[in-house]
Structures are given as structure tokens and as C-alpha cells.
């Protein structure tokens, strides 16, 4: 681990004042400390934000507000979350382990870095870690990599589960800088890699996530988060699907879908949503509608199974959410 200057912030304005180019905010540390040990992240100043008053989980003005410093485990167990948006709770509980969920904050979860092994290994080239050095995953071991939103520079997946649920639910993140607050839809917060995979989001220098705001959806109780992975627990997704569905007399009125483990960012499936509306909620309707999920997909040598896995996962998630299995 490289040497750094350590500072503790007790207010958001303190934290913003302490930030400078090359500094990093430290919350739960489950990404940052790990990647500092690997020399993948080398901040010269670490600002401890654990004492910031960015807490609270509440319903206000038709939306669920989650403070950025709330821990994953606390959000998952909160009665307001489990009653209003059970999909969020489920996505969190299928992530990481009990210990990590006690540590990791919601803001930090959204800022977690990819699990691409080439990114995590400083002896490898990686355009995300060292721009212009190349992408060994394109021709190397790429079973876990993305098929959607990829570029010739980067095929790394976004690793968060709860971000997939948030994108399906059209959550927004509140960002604070010395210029004040701004609110950005989480889907637009993340950038596609293009030719600049080192720029993963729209966060400005020294800008801090302070809150996640999730609009309530009267029918979001009919929802699920399905995660497919190599082992049953404590593993990242090969494919995951966040689904919520509204039915009237067996006909799809409205639906929300997003996928994880397949995209370079949490992947909203709008074309599938449109294809589903007005259809009778049954397996055949669902399997006809999912074809467009993989439009533009670029499978790699080791993950050619992902388009098929994604489509089948969407069908299963829809059957679960609709309760028509």
C-alpha cells in the first residue's frame, strides 16, 4: 500500500474542503482498502467520511430516501425498504457477505470498481487502470465479462447488484460539491467505457454522493431480483435481473427490467419492457419479448453463454414477479 495522508471529516463541507486531486473518500473501505493493498488505487490523501451525518431511511414526497452512509445490511433490513421496495432488499441480501454488508455503505456500493482480474492485477495492462495500455480481457480470460455496452477499450462488468435494482426503479443520486447539490438519474450517473473506460461516472473532482432517492411505485411489491452465479452465495453475478411487474386481469400494464453481470454498467432493458406491455402474462409472451434484450450484444470467446442465460433469466424473473409460475 502506498503512503497517504489521512484526514477525518465530521461534516460534508469539511469533507469537500479536504478533497483535492488524488484524494479518495473512505466509507466502509471494502473496495478502497482492498484496491489500495493491490496498488490499483493509490490516493495520496484518504478522507474518512464515516462520521458524516448522511444517515436516514425514510419516505418523503413519494420517494424513498436513503442516506449515502447507510450500510448495505441496515438498508436491506429496514422495514420501509422491505415494504416499499422489496427488490432493493433482496438485491442487497444476495450481495457480498454479512460482514461486508455491515461495513459497506450505499454510496460506496455505487462507487465499487469492477471485478475484472486484469483491472485488479497491476502487472497486467488495463485501459481502465492505465489508460492506453490495452485490454487483455478482449482476448484473454473473459468468461465473467460484459456483452452489452462494451468497447474495444474495455469489456469489464459493473459489479453492483443494488445498482441494478436502483436503475430498474429509476433511482436518482444526489451529488454535492462546493457548487451545491445536483440530482442525476443513476442510469446516467454511469458512463459507457467508449475510449475512456477510466471515466466510470459523471462525478466531478471532490464531488460526493450524499443520498439515493427511489420513487415509490405502487406495484413494485410484485418484484424480484434474480441472481445467477457460480456458487449459491457470496459471489458476483454471471447474470442478474431486477424485475417489477404490474398486471390487470392477467395483462401486463407496466413493467421494469434491468440486468447485471452482462453490461459495462447496470443495464436497463427498455425494449423488452415495451414489448411486454399489453401482453398476457405467461411464459410464451415473456420468452417472445426477451429477444430484444441482447440487441447489439458482443459475446466474447468465453462468455458466449451469456445472451442465452440473460434471456432465460429475464423470463424466470418475470414469472416470479408476476406469480404465474
Amino acid at each position: 500500500m502506498r503512503a497517504f495522508d489521512f484526514a477525518t471529516a465530521s461534516t460534508v463541507s469539511d469533507a469537500l474542503k479536504l478533497a483535492r486531486p488524488g484524494s479518495a473518500f473512505l466509507a466502509g473501505g471494502t473496495t478502497l482498502v482492498d484496491l489500495m493493498k493491490l496498488d490499483v488505487m493509490t490516493p495520496d490523501r484518504v478522507i474518512d467520511v464515516n462520521a458524516l451525518p448522511l444517515k436516514g431511511i425514510k419516505l418523503r414526497d413519494g420517494a424513498l430516501h436513503i442516506g449515502a452512509m447507510e450500510r448495505m445490511g441496515d438498508v436491506a433490513a429496514h422495514p420501509v425498504v422491505t415494504s416499499v421496495h422489496p427488490m432493493i432488499s433482496r438485491a442487497l441480501l444476495l450481495s457480498a457477505s454479512g460482514q461486508l454488508r455491515n461495513m459497506a455503505s450505499i454510496g460506496g456500493n455505487l462507487m465499487q470498481r469492477t471485478r475484472c482480474d486484469y483491472f485488479r492485477d497491476v502487472t497486467s495492462a488495463c485501459n481502465k487502470r492505465l489508460p492506453g495500455s490495452g485490454c487483455p480481457a478482449l482476448t484473454g480470460i473473459n468468461r465473467g465479462h460484459a456483452i452489452l455496452g462494451t468497447s474495444d477499450s474495455c469489456v469489464a462488468t459493473h459489479a453492483s447488484d443494488v445498482a441494478v435494482a436502483f436503475v430498474a426503479l429509476e433511482a436518482q443520486v444526489v451529488l454535492r460539491s462546493s457548487d451545491g447539490d445536483r440530482t442525476v438519474p443513476l442510469e446516467d450517473f454511469y458512463r459507457l467505457p467508449g475510449s475512456t473506460p477510466e471515466r466510470e461516472n459523471v462525478l466531478g473532482p471532490g464531488e460526493l454522493i450524499t443520498e439515493v432517492v427511489v420513487p415509490t411505485l405502487s406495484w413494485a411489491r410484485h418484484s424480484t431480483y434474480l441472481k445467477i452465479r457460480d456458487r449459491q452465495s457470496y459471489e458476483f453475478a454471471l447474470t442478474s435481473v431486477a424485475a417489477a411487474i404490474s398486471l390487470k386481469r392477467g395483462v401486463v400494464q407496466d413493467v421494469r427490467l434491468a440486468a447485471g453481470g452482462v453490461g459495462t454498467k447496470p443495464w436497463r432493458l427498455r425494449a423488452v419492457e415495451e414489448a411486454l406491455k399489453g401482453g398476457v402474462a405467461m411464459e410464451r409472451t415473456f420468452s417472445d419479448a426477451v429477444e430484444s434484450a441482447v440487441d447489439g450484444a458482443r459475446p466474447l470467446a468465453h462468455n458466449a453463454f451469456k445472451p442465452s442465460l440473460l434471456k432465460r433469466s429475464i423470463v424466470r424473473a418475470l414469472l416470479d414477479a408476476a406469480g404465474v409460475r
Binding site: 466502509g28 471494502t30 484518504v46 460482514q99
Partner: peptide, 24 residues
């Protein structure tokens, strides 16, 4: 942070001591 062998309690919650900086 992958094996759990270093699990301890901080303020009565189980956490991983290998990913916790003492300074915090």
C-alpha cells in the same frame, strides 16, 4: 476480504478486520 478468518466485532457488529483501517 474474501475468507472471513479475520472477523471481529466493531461496536457489536461483525466486520472484517483486514479491510478496516485502524485509523478509522
Amino acid at each position: 476480504g474474501q475468507c472471513g478468518a479475520c472477523t471481529v466485532h466493531v461496536d457489536d457488529r461483525r466486520v472484517l478486520s483486514c479491510l478496516t483501517l485502524t485509523a478509522t
